[in-house]
């Protein structure tokens, strides 16, 4: 099995999920290569070697500076045509999902997404994918090579093996349509405010709050518990709460001692960001909300009634 792992990087760092996938690839076979595409990224190649890559292909070009998918499809497709890997793996992110699907179309290759495991079974690669809100696990495979896969966030931990990789620069030739989208303003991680990643207790609010003004309920409860406030993607996108507090697939991954979800339905994109929490309590008026499937305690009811009462009870207890 010859595997290529696409490595994502941000502000001079290879991303943890990418390195985790690289480590998994190295466990499945010896012939593991990595691709790093960007501008001024050659320095990242050595790190890829330490985490399991035998060979690192570096596509370094100013045209690859912005984290946009289409130029990366061109680079990956070129490399594939020259080297012929039988498997191409991605740690799933907003960027890599688009790269993987673009590459699947370009190479007419099968893509399986949202995998939480990969195994080799008699020479056949088998992926495991939770489906229907994680109620079933589907074993999936590929009918032809190359086999493309997106691995769910947080699935594999990086393992430092201390290896050294051979580094090769690859030429960058881009399609006309690939360079038409331009980055006008690129996101930078916001550093102001307390980080929810270090919080011991998190109270998170979702769309069920009904409006930004009701975040006060969440803030009061968090204050009483000595915890931090978090939000779902839906309310962050709606402008109710800042992005730095977002938990989930495109936000932070947290694992506090206590996570209280208020008015959060608990879609899979949210779940992957908080399922490692020690104790999960959910308050939601919809008895069918998926969050009740994985909350240690779920309370079906009106958050406007329950949350102020809970805040008061916690205050009394802390004062006693």
């Amino acid at each position: 099995m010859s595997t290529l792992v696409f490595l994502e990087h941000h502000e001079g760092e290879l991303q943890k999920d990418s390195l985790g996938v690289l480590g998994k690839a190295a466990l499945l076979g010896d012939d593991v290569s990595a691709l790093i595409a960007g501008s001024g990224v050659e320095g990242l190649a050595a790190q890829a070697g330490k985490y399991g890559a035998r060979k690192v292909y570096v596509a370094d070009d100013p045209a690859l500076e912005a984290p946009l998918p289409q130029p990366r499809v061109d680079v990956a497709a070129d490399l594939f045509r020259r080297q012929g890997f039988d498997t191409v793996l991605f740690g799933a992110t907003v960027l890599t999902a688009d790269v993987a699907a673009g590459l699947a179309a370009r190479l007419d290759a099968g893509l399986n997404w949202d995998l939480v495991d990969l195994a080799e079974d008699n020479g056949k690669l088998v992926g495991k994918r939770p489906a229907l809100d994680d109620t079933v696990y589907v074993e999936v495979g590929w009918k032809s090579e190359p086999r493309l896969a997106l691995i769910r966030t947080g699935t594999f931990e990086p393992v430092e093996s201390g290896g050294e990789a051979e580094v090769e620069q690859v030429a960058v030739e881009l399609e006309d349509f690939s360079t038409q989208a331009k980055m006008i303003e690129q996101a930078h991680e916001e550093s102001e405010g307390p980080s929810i990643e270090d919080a011991d207790v998190i109270v998170a609010g979702g769309r069920g709050l009904g409006g930004p003004e009701n975040f006060a309920l969440v803030e009061e409860l968090a204050k009483a518990l000595g915890g931090a406030v978090a939000a779902t993607r839906a309310v962050v996108d709606a402008g109710w709460y800042p992005y730095s507090t977002q938990v989930g697939q495109t936000g932070k991954t947290v694992a506090p001692r206590l996570y209280i979800a208020v008015g959060i339905s608990g879609a899979i994109q949210h779940k992957v960001g908080m399922q490692g929490s020690n104790v999960i309590v959910a308050i939601n008026k919809d008895p069918n909300a998926p969050i009740f499937e994985y909350a240690d305690l779920g309370v079906v009811g009106d958050l406007h009634e329950i949350v102020p009462k809970l805040t008061e009870l916690v205050r009394q207890r802390k004062a006693a």
Binding site: Y137, P287, V299, G301, I306
Partner: peptide
């Protein structure tokens, strides 16, 4: 025309006990 296939459908790993109450 498809390049992927499904081999088997299984159950997810058991999760811890969850309890739900109506307020």
């Amino acid at each position: 025309g498809s390049r992927t296939e499904v081999y088997a459908i299984g159950h997810p790993p058991p999760r811890g006990e969850t309890q739900r109450i109506d307020d």
